[in-house]
């Protein structure tokens, strides 16, 4: 039996080398300055007006996107879960399929759709409706986030809802619960692991994105992801970049802990 455990050696080596050590490096750089001396300056730099504004905007936009994703995805997941489609894989495929078209191109396509004389505005003006002017604004970024991360909300919700025993819901109805009560007392609590998992899977990438803000926000909107990316690729101040990443990781760790508490059976929650 012990021989079997040896099979974990490559993975163990890999995760120490490429997951654990790199994370330690971020902490090393985040807490030192150029001379290698210990400092907290890189962390406290988040309080500067410019950085704090970026962080605040990131939190705000990602929270809004997460809520919109949840509101859009929950009814969808309920409809799909009740459709009794035998082919679970079909539903997964529909949401995975867009990923085969490059994520940058798909996001850029929204530029074409949203432009002043773009497709959507042409349709709106044809219908004599007021036109949308949201390109290069935070609204366009929220739209881009919802578009890119919606599948990450739908799939865990669907998985959680499909597992619910229909007899439990029928029992609630038999015992006189109305549809609203059935939802708030039975369906929603039972789907909570999916909700939490979906929230973390949308919130974390939305909070840390720099691509969506670059592509849809023009160069006007700066998110915390943009600040960190510039520190690494343009300014070359890895110490400050690492320090700001540590601040970001606090949010990530909070959501990791939340999902660990609510979602004990995470293994295989992916599909």
């Amino acid at each position: 039996m012990n021989k079997k455990k040896l099979l974990a050696t490559p993975y163990l080596f890999w995760s120490v080398m490429f997951i654990i050590i790199p994370l330690c490096m971020i902490f090393y750089y985040g807490f030192t300055d150029k001379t290698g001396a210990f400092t907290l300056e890189n962390i406290t730099a988040i309080a500067s007006a410019e950085h704090f504004k970026a962080l605040w905007l990131s939190i705000l936009l990602s929270l809004i996107s997460t809520v919109i994703c949840l509101l859009l995805a929950y009814p969808l997941a309920m409809i799909l879960a009740n459709m009794n489609v035998n082919q679970n894989s079909f539903i997964v495929v529909i949401f995975i399929l867009p990923m085969w078209m490059n994520f940058l191109l798909r996001t850029l396509a929204w530029q074409t759709l949203l432009e002043k004389t773009g497709v959507i505005n042409n349709i709106l003006s044809f219908l004599h409706l007021p036109t949308l002017n949201i390109i290069n604004t935070p609204y366009a970024i929220v739209l881009g986030m919802v578009y890119n991360f919606l599948p990450f909300m739908v799939l865990p919700l669907y998985n959680a809802l499909v597992k619910i025993d229909k007899n439990v819901i029928n029992a609630a109805k038999d015992l006189g619960a109305n549809p609203v009560q059935t939802f708030t007392k039975i369906t929603f609590p039972l789907s909570l692991p999916g909700v939490i998992s979906g929230i973390t899977m949308v919130f974390v990438p939305a909070l840390t994105t720099f691509v969506i803000s670059t592509l849809l926000g023009g160069s006007k909107v700066l998110l915390i992801g943009n600040v960190i990316e510039q520190e690494f690729t343009q300014t070359g101040n890895w110490y400050l970049g690492s320090g700001l990443s540590i601040v970001l990781m606090i949010f990530i760790i909070i959501s990791m802990i939340l999902s660990a508490i609510f979602d004990k059976d995470r293994e295989g929650a992916l599909l």
Partner: peptide, 24 residues
């Protein structure tokens, strides 16, 4: 413990994973 380590790259932000590997 192993599953916890497995979840790190899944739950961690891509930008942090990318930066950490770059520093490595």
């Amino acid at each position: 413990v192993f599953m916890g380590i497995t979840n790190i790259p899944m739950l961690n932000a891509d930008i942090v994973t990318g930066i950490s590997l770059m520093l490595l």
